[in-house]
Simulated assay, not measured.
Amino acid sequence: MPKIAGNIEFTNFSKSEYLLHDTIQNHYVKISNEVYDLLCLIDGKKSIHDIIIAYNNQYDLELTEEFVHDLLYKKLQPYGLLEGENENLKKYKKPGYLNLSFIIFNENLLKKITPFFGFLFKSKISICVIILCIGIIGSCLYYHFDLYSSFNLRNSLIYFFILMAMSTTFHEIGHASSANYFGAKHGGIGGGFYLFTPVYYADVTDVWRLPKKQRIVVNLAGMYFELIFCSLIVVFATLILKNSFLAVLASIVCIKTLNNLNPFLRSDGYWIFSDIINKPNLMSHAGKKVLSIFSKKQKKWKGEDFLLFFYGLISYSIILLFVYYVIIKNPNSILLFPKNLYNFFKNLFTRGAEFSFSEFAQLLVPMLFFYLLFNFIKGFIISKKDKLSKS
């Protein structure tokens, strides 16, 4: 007599899909409308045999007990679907692309802050704020164009990084505030490393329960808040401090946030594109779609299938071009990497030695190469283990 666990919630995700949410382990699993209809027949009183008869009679199908048993107890139960079945439950894991992550502002502290920013997401207010902020940033760059064109960022890195840290914090508060405004839960704000680059992140996984348009707004909210923050700094620097340098620096930081629209890195652009085509694991789906062209069994493609295919094709092309550049065009960066890394840290901690950010930037290329190589080998080993365990 299977029974749905009390910690399981269902949310309509799209026209053909529902979202199964385990509120304890914080798992989110997409299921089809057909699977959802089957799960709705589970009430703790019917046996699997009775559920199958009711479902087959209702939809004129011929589901077997073996199929339904595997679906419930092997595929869905690891996500906490059934009450009293606590074996082989999957524990929540942090995203694999985020390394050395840690919490900076915990969930309880953030919950005290986010409600105050809800008014910024009302449509009329948000439109006025965006137009005003764009006008402020644009005017700053226009009237201080000479200072901007001759701006030496290297001599101002410490100020730039401080302003960047403050702006990025506000960026993540924007994500959390928008999630709270639309009724989704949010976790804390943390830090970590993505492709050897320090990053901030806000845990807003629960927004998958929201409609597509609201999810896109949540993903755009970070840049929206950075625009507001930088505009306030420009106004404060211009009217109060009379400091054109700080105003231009804030404008540069504001322009920098447009990098988040890049859909080929796991930033806001990636999640926006993922929301548009309703694919939470975008990179994985895109890779499978590219490989599917070599399959003998070809299904008729829809519009989103073509989007996934071209997205995956471009992603793989970028990786191949990067590998070609490293191995063919610049092999010394790989061969001399240990020596260059040793010399860099030696100079970094040697008094009187020159510290060069350009040297550090050159180290990032081989570091990224070894990171990709490590993930490829790890994925290959895991896939081999999975095949052996299934056999």
Rank of each mutant, 00 (worst) to 15 (best):
M367V: 02
Y28Q: 00
L100V: 08
I8L: 08
K288W: 08
F151N: 06
Q77S: 14
V323A: 04
M223W: 01
K297M: 03
Y224G: 01
N108G: 05
V217W: 00
N343H: 14
D50R: 09
T257F: 11
Y371I: 01
G187W: 01
F67R: 04
V248A: 03
I130S: 04
L320V: 15
V207A: 07
V204F: 03
T238D: 05
K213G: 10
D305Q: 07
A250N: 03
P263T: 04
I127N: 08
E66K: 14
K111H: 13
Y59A: 01
F306G: 09
I334K: 09
D203W: 03
L61S: 13
I162A: 15
W301P: 12
G174M: 01
N219I: 06
K46V: 02
F345P: 04
Y181F: 11
F102P: 04
Y73G: 00
A5C: 02
K339V: 12
I377G: 05
Y28L: 00
L61C: 12
F264M: 10
K242S: 14
I31E: 03
S267V: 06
V235Q: 07
N99Y: 12
L261I: 11
D275Y: 05
N259G: 10
L336E: 12
L368R: 05
F380K: 11
I328D: 09
S14T: 10
S167F: 07
Y342I: 09
L258G: 09
T114S: 13
E66T: 14
E87W: 02
N108Y: 08
K75R: 12
N152V: 15
D60I: 15
A247C: 11
M166S: 15
G379V: 07
